[in-house]
Every structure is written in C-alpha cells, then in structure tokens.
Simulated assay, not measured.
Amino acid sequence: MPVEALVAQAKRLINFFIAPKQSERLEDAQKMLRLQDNDVLRAKMDILTHWNSSFLAWERLLLIKDAINIVLATLTVSNALEAWKDS
C-alpha cells in the first residue's frame, strides 16, 4: 500500500473519531477494556502547522487501536439504522 493511501486512511479514521458521537463510543469501548487505568484517550488531530502532530496523532491511534476495533466491529454488525448511518 502506498504511503499516501495509508496517510489518507489514518486521517479519515481520525476525523471519524473526532465526531462527538463516535468519540463517546470510543470512550465506552475504552472503559469496557479498562485501558490505561480508566484514563480515556481521544483521537488527536493532525495539524499541518504544528510540528510533530502527525507523529502524535498516529501514536494515539496505536494506543487506542483495540478500542477502535471494538467500535468499528459493533458498527458493522449492528442492525440499528443510526449505527449504519454513522459507519
């Protein structure tokens, strides 16, 4: 996979989890997993004018990877119309 495609997918994932509803779902998944001693981590934005923000955003994605997988799995198997719209 070309690097540009990987970067684009990461940005779409970050933008998806910045939304309030998805951020709440991510928080619930982290609480269920009891990550970081109940500390809730949110997705970080990649900001072009901030030095090192891409690295920090990707690092955060790796830290919350298990919670992201849970949220995405529940969205794809959910029968609720609202969950389908969100995914």
Rank of each mutant, 00 (worst) to 15 (best):
L72K: 02
N69W: 11
E24W: 10
L33H: 03
F16C: 06
D39I: 03
M45T: 08
A43Q: 01
A8P: 03
L75Q: 10
L72P: 00
M45A: 11
S53R: 00
L81M: 09
I47N: 05
R60S: 11
L41F: 13
A19T: 07
N79Q: 11
A73G: 06
R25I: 04
N15D: 15
K31A: 07
E4N: 04
L35K: 00
I14M: 06
L75W: 10
K31Q: 08
L72D: 02
T76V: 14
I18Q: 10
W58L: 14
I64Y: 03
R34E: 15
T74W: 14
L33M: 07
L6M: 08
I70G: 03
E4Y: 13
D46Q: 01
I64N: 01
K44W: 14
D39F: 15
I18H: 05
I70W: 09
L41Q: 07
E82C: 07
E59M: 07
L63W: 04
A5L: 13
I18V: 09
M32D: 09
T74H: 10
L26C: 07
P2N: 07
N52D: 15
I18G: 01
F17I: 03
L62K: 01
L26N: 00
W84D: 14
S54D: 04
A29F: 09
D66A: 05
I64F: 05
N15I: 13
A29I: 04
I14A: 04
E27T: 07
M32Y: 07
L62W: 13
V71L: 05
Q30N: 06
V7R: 01
D37H: 03
E82P: 01
K44E: 15
F55M: 02
V7L: 10
R42H: 13
P20Q: 03
N38C: 11
L63Q: 10
V3I: 14
D39L: 10
L26Q: 01
S23F: 13
I68E: 02
E27P: 01
N69R: 00
I47H: 04
Q22H: 12
H50F: 12
K21M: 12
D28I: 03
W51D: 09
E59G: 06
A67C: 02
A29L: 13
E59N: 05
D66R: 00
T74F: 15
A8T: 06
A83T: 08
Q22R: 00
S53P: 06
D86L: 11
W51Y: 09
V40S: 06
V7I: 09
E59R: 00
L48Y: 09
V3K: 01
R60L: 12
M32S: 11
P2A: 04
L63I: 08
I70H: 05
A43N: 01
M45V: 11
V40K: 01
R60A: 11
D37F: 09
L63H: 04
E27D: 08
Q30V: 06
V3F: 13
I47A: 10
A8K: 08
V7K: 02
N38T: 01
V71K: 00
N52P: 05
W84V: 06
